[in-house]
Computed example of a mutant assay.
Amino acid sequence: MKNLFFSAVVATATLASCSTVSSILQNTFPYNATVLVAAGSPANIELSSVSAAQSVNQLTGSGANVKDITVSNATLSVGSDTSMGVFKSVKVYLSNNGSNQVLVASRESIPDNVGNSLSMDVNTSQKLDNMMKSGAVQAKIVYVLKQSPTSDISLKASVGFNSVPVN
């Protein structure tokens, strides 16, 4: 009898923890996009690159189970041999295949000695449910360089999202 009771407790705890982990994964999920800044790109001019993005369905496998999707954090990073200080400003937009573009993160007046990673100022006021569940999300990174790079720069945007489960 003790073994049966113990087995039932373990099974219940396992199911509850799996449900909790699944809920956490669905309620906080990352998004990454990488674009190439070509060597010789002109300085002091607004440039942009588009990267195919992922929908919440691709990220969690069950996008229909979340709602009220908002941006929680965003960072940009470059390789260890480059500094984010090469950029004067950077903005990250998400859109549905180029339409319904929403500014999700930005940073102006980037210092020269910032290193190879940079925290962005995020737009937490927008609900992104329809866009993220569309399956056709794109990231557009708009930037201004301080000087023309001498080699290609791989610029990675990492955006974190919060959501709540659908009841």
Rank of each mutant, 00 (worst) to 15 (best):
A139F: 08
T70K: 15
V71Q: 09
P165K: 15
L15T: 11
A64N: 12
M132L: 15
L103D: 00
L145H: 10
F161H: 04
G63T: 05
M120R: 07
Q101H: 00
Y31Q: 06
I153V: 13
V122A: 07
K2I: 10
F5L: 13
V137Q: 11
A74P: 00
L59Q: 11
M1G: 15
D81R: 07
I153P: 01
M120Q: 08
A33N: 01
V104Q: 04
D81T: 15
V122L: 04
N116G: 04
T34D: 04
S125Y: 06
Q26H: 10
N113Q: 01
K127S: 09
G79V: 03
N65W: 01
S72V: 04
V71P: 03
L128P: 03
S22K: 12
K146A: 07
V144T: 15
A157L: 03
V78T: 13
A74K: 01
S7Q: 10
V142R: 08
T34V: 13
P42C: 02
G98L: 03
Y143M: 11
V56L: 01
N65R: 12
V104D: 04
S134T: 07
T34R: 12
A13K: 01
V122N: 04
A53E: 08
L118S: 11
S22D: 13
V71W: 10
A33E: 02
A13V: 11
Q147K: 15
A11S: 13
I24E: 09
S49G: 14
N130G: 11
T34K: 11
A52R: 09
D112T: 12
I153R: 06
L145P: 05
S83L: 07
D152E: 07
V71E: 08
N167K: 15
M84K: 04
P149W: 14
T82N: 12
S55E: 02
S154A: 13
A52E: 08
D112H: 04
A13I: 05
S72Y: 02
S55N: 08
L4G: 11
S22W: 10
D152W: 07
V21H: 06
N3S: 14
A43L: 01
L118T: 10
N167H: 10
Q26I: 01
S109G: 00
A8R: 10
D112L: 08
G85L: 06
V166T: 14
D129W: 04
M131N: 06
L59P: 00
K91W: 00
